[in-house]
């Protein structure tokens, strides 16, 4: 596992709601590694801190202790534009994660312009067409606003947006949870595809164990802000070591 690799070490995050409040610890000394081309699942119940860890990794949560390294480089708490480009994110709710006032083309082009990718307008247009093909969307939808698309289409656009800047890692935070089952399957296949085609690394945050089992290489189980178990997917599902993992598996209704 060489190449672009994410190493998060001893990450702690405390949310202080009021002054003089000792605060609520969302994460305690969490360490996690995502290798190149690897899909790592991060599972845990609501409030366990999985989204917070995702936000630390993409640079949305700027106050934390510990370090996030990518490709050997320690990332600043306030990311530089180049550091932002390397790690992108796909959000849970495709109805909330796209600017309703903008067409797909406007959203994608803005990113290309900001990151100086693509050169001429024609080149950018072509690149956006390729991005749409990559996420199995007709290029004709480039000039459509989110209101004119279904939930699954919107999520594909959100993925295209994440991929527009050539990231090496994508954090997918409950990226399939808001979609119905058949659409979910399409998005999951897309993620697997992207890993195979462009060697994308993915941190897949989910509470849906069935999805995690079918997609991920390794799984990290997080409970009350601490990672309690990390193992290969097969091992987690066949021989869970930690009590909490066993509880989680037992609570999942659709698993054999």
């Amino acid at each position: 596992m060489s190449g672009s690799e994410l190493v998060a070490e001893k990450i702690s995050v405390t949310f202080a709601t009021r002054r003089h409040d000792p605060g609520h610890r969302a994460l305690t000394d969490v360490s996690l590694r995502v290798g190149k081309g690897e899909i790592v699942g991060l599972v845990g119940e609501s409030g366990s801190g999985k989204s917070t860890l995702g936000r630390v990794i993409v640079g949305l949560q700027e106050s934390y202790t510990g370090s996030v390294r990518f490709d050997g480089e320690t990332l600043a708490h306030r990311r530089t534009i180049a550091q932002r480009r390397a790690i992108q994110m796909v959000f849970q709710d495709p109805y909330a994660s796209l600017d309703p006032q903008m067409t797909v083309w406007q959203m994608l082009e803005e990113l290309l312009v900001v990151h100086r990718i693509g050169g001429t307008r024609e080149a950018r247009r072509e690149r956006c067409g390729e991005l749409m093909r990559l996420v199995h969307m007709p290029a004709g939808l480039l000039d459509v606003r989110p209101a004119g698309m279904s939930g699954g289409q919107r999520q594909r656009v959100a993925i295209a947006r994440a991929l527009a800047v050539d990231p090496r890692l994508v954090v997918a935070d409950e990226a399939t949870s808001a979609l119905d089952v058949s659409v979910q399957a399409g998005i999951i296949n897309l993620f697997a595809d992207l890993r195979d085609k462009i060697g994308l690394s993915i941190l897949f945050i989910s509470h849906n164990l069935a999805v995690v089992r079918s997609l991920c290489d390794r799984v990290a189980v997080i409970c009350q802000g601490e990672i309690v178990e990390v193992a290969a997917t097969q091992a987690i599902f066949d021989a869970p070591q930690h009590d909490y993992t066993r509880q989680l598996l037992a609570a999942a209704p659709d698993l054999p």
Binding site: G59, Q101, L111, V114
Partner: peptide, 26 residues
């Protein structure tokens, strides 16, 4: 505090651009 604002930040879009190209029209 909506997701699409976070998405813009992750995308490396500058604050001025976020406020005047994305926030204001909305």
């Amino acid at each position: 505090s909506t997701d699409f604002m976070d998405a813009l930040r992750v995308g490396g879009i500058g604050t001025v651009r976020i406020v005047f190209r994305h926030l204001v029209p909305n």
